[in-house]
């Protein structure tokens, strides 16, 4: 019901304009608390020292990379099956955000790797390697959107690609993981570690929820922009005709 009602861009714009300030406020508050708590109020790790605090930026970013891709695939399915116009807009607007979060995860992951592993990049960490591939998939998706001029056609092509990717990403992750355990020395320290103390877990969860609201805010903003852009384009074409 909710989804069909939102197919009307006007209704969506009205709703998102009332919702987006709240998501922005929640993101600022949660990230403010989360950053203070995780950076200043948690003790340094007995093994990793202060470097452990990179985790609070890294783990939520890595999580967002996967979460946003799943959301994009879901939106693509809705767009492809129900011809829902806003689902396409949502998928298109989410992709650069997902790519940015994934890039942030890679960057922080390798910064963490320098003191921990002694190198910026470690092919032995399956999660980082599969995130790198995920970033490439995001880039291909964005490139495909930009390369096709007709927005309807671009939306369909991108949606098919997102669904193919959704089927493939778990397989890629599995293959990288398998490859690691077989042919590479297992890394002693993995980002996030096997078990997390409660003192770290609570601020980490706050950061994750904060990141999610930041994403929602940016997504709504990008979707509004995209809708207005399309409106401006059709107005221009109407005037030209």
């Amino acid at each position: 019901m909710m989804i069909t009602a939102l197919a009307n861009p006007k209704r969506f714009l009205d709703l998102s304009r009332t919702v987006s300030p709240w998501t922005c406020a929640l993101a600022v508050i949660l990230l403010g608390i989360g950053f203070y708590w995780s950076l200043f109020a948690t003790p340094p790790d007995y093994q990793q020292g202060q470097s452990v605090k990179i985790m609070f930026v890294h783990v939520p970013a890595a999580w967002m990379g996967i979460f946003i891709y799943s959301m994009m695939a879901g939106a693509s399915l809705v767009g492809l099956v129900f011809r829902h116009p806003l689902a396409d807009v949502a998928a298109k607007s989410a992709a650069p955000l997902g790519a940015a979060f994934t890039a942030l995860a890679l960057l922080t992951g390798s910064l963490w790797g320098r003191p921990m592993w002694g190198t910026y990049w470690q092919w032995g960490d399956a999660r980082l390697v599969s995130e790198l591939i995920l970033l490439f998939i995001y880039l291909g998706y964005i490139a495909l959107w930009n390369a096709i001029d007709d927005p309807v056609r671009a939306a369909k092509a991108a949606a098919v690609l997102a669904l193919v990717g959704a089927a493939d990403v778990p397989v890629i992750h599995f293959s990288v993981d398998w490859w690691n355990t077989l042919h590479q020395p297992a890394s002693i320290l993995r980002l996030g570690g096997p078990t997390i103390d409660k003192a770290f877990l609570v601020p980490l969860l706050i950061m994750i929820v904060g990141y999610t609201f930041l994403f929602l805010w940016l997504l709504l903003l990008r979707m509004q922009t995209e809708i207005l852009e399309r409106r401006a384009r059709s107005l221009m074409m109407a005037r030209g005709a």
Partner: peptide
């Protein structure tokens, strides 16, 4: 998917190569 893209070769590579990493990994292994 890249049929209507002019000079789609690079985009084709960008789309296809990440998706076939499992084949590469398992094949070389």
């Amino acid at each position: 998917l890249t049929l209507s893209v002019r000079r789609g070769g690079l985009i084709l590579a960008l789309i296809v190569l990440p998706l076939i990493t499992p084949a590469l990994i398992f094949g070389a292994s």
